[in-house]
């Protein structure tokens, strides 16, 4: 079938514009199989009422039944509801975890009067570590990199003692450093016996 079209129209075929649901990223017709159906429905109703009617009106639902029996349909609906509840619980748990997680700003002594600053736990707040490291490097004009600490977690190590400045930056939500509540930030000093 496409062979005929090709010979008839040698011009490049324009791409199809496909609408994706902003909630679950699926094409809206697949929202019903996602884990956030009710939210997807709301979104579609607000943004594209005509499409909403097409997918969720009574006759559309009837037509959708297609070859499936009543039992299968109800089972599917139950599953969808269950899945949705599960996804919500998961999101809640993730949110709680996020609220509980701490950002540590560590001042570590390397030499007598040479320090590095390690910032740990930013990734929990959806901050791109690489971009944040770059930001630190630019603002302090020092080396700044993402490294693995002994526990195998990623942290940002900035050369020089910039712990207070980093704290300020997080407070002011500079650049990519967004969404970290101040209460969750902690300044600590890593020993080597030097009173501060």
């Amino acid at each position: 079938m496409s062979a005929e079209q090709e010979t008839a129209a040698p011009q490049p075929k324009p791409p199809l514009q496909v609408l994706y649901c902003e909630v679950c990223t699926f094409p809206p017709e697949y929202c019903e199989f996602g884990s956030s159906l009710s939210k997807c429905k709301e979104w579609l109703k607000d943004e594209y009422p005509d499409l909403y009617d097409r997918y969720y009106s009574e006759e559309a639902l009837q037509a959708k039944m297609g070859t499936m029996s009543m039992e299968q349909q109800t089972k599917l609906e139950q599953d969808a509801a269950k899945k949705e509840a599960k996804a919500e619980a998961k999101a809640d748990a993730a949110k709680k975890k996020k609220l509980a997680s701490q950002v540590l700003i560590k001042r570590i002594q390397r030499q007598k009067n040479k320090y590095v600053t390690a910032i740990h736990g930013l990734e929990a707040f959806d901050i791109d570590l690489k971009k944040a490291a770059k930001l630190f490097a630019q603002t302090f004009a020092t080396g700044s990199s993402v490294t693995k600490n002994p526990q195998g977690q990623d942290e940002i190590v900035v050369q020089g003692d910039v712990s207070d400045e980093v704290l300020d930056m997080i407070r002011e939500e500079k650049g990519v450093l967004k969404g970290v509540p101040e209460a969750n930030v902690e300044l600590i000093e890593e020993k080597k016996k030097k009173g501060s």
């Binding site: 496409s2 075929k13 791409p15 199809l16 514009q17 496909v18 094409p27 697949y30 199989f33 959708k64 297609g66 070859t67 499936m68 299968q72 599917l76 599953d79």
Partner: peptide, 25 residues
């Protein structure tokens, strides 16, 4: 899949029934 959505004719197609969608996903 995103590219395929834009140019759906590039691959031959087969179709599954509605009951299979859940498992496919």
């Amino acid at each position: 899949l995103r590219l395929l959505h834009k140019y759906p004719f590039v691959l031959p197609t087969v179709r599954v029934d509605r009951g299979a969608i859940r498992f496919l996903l």
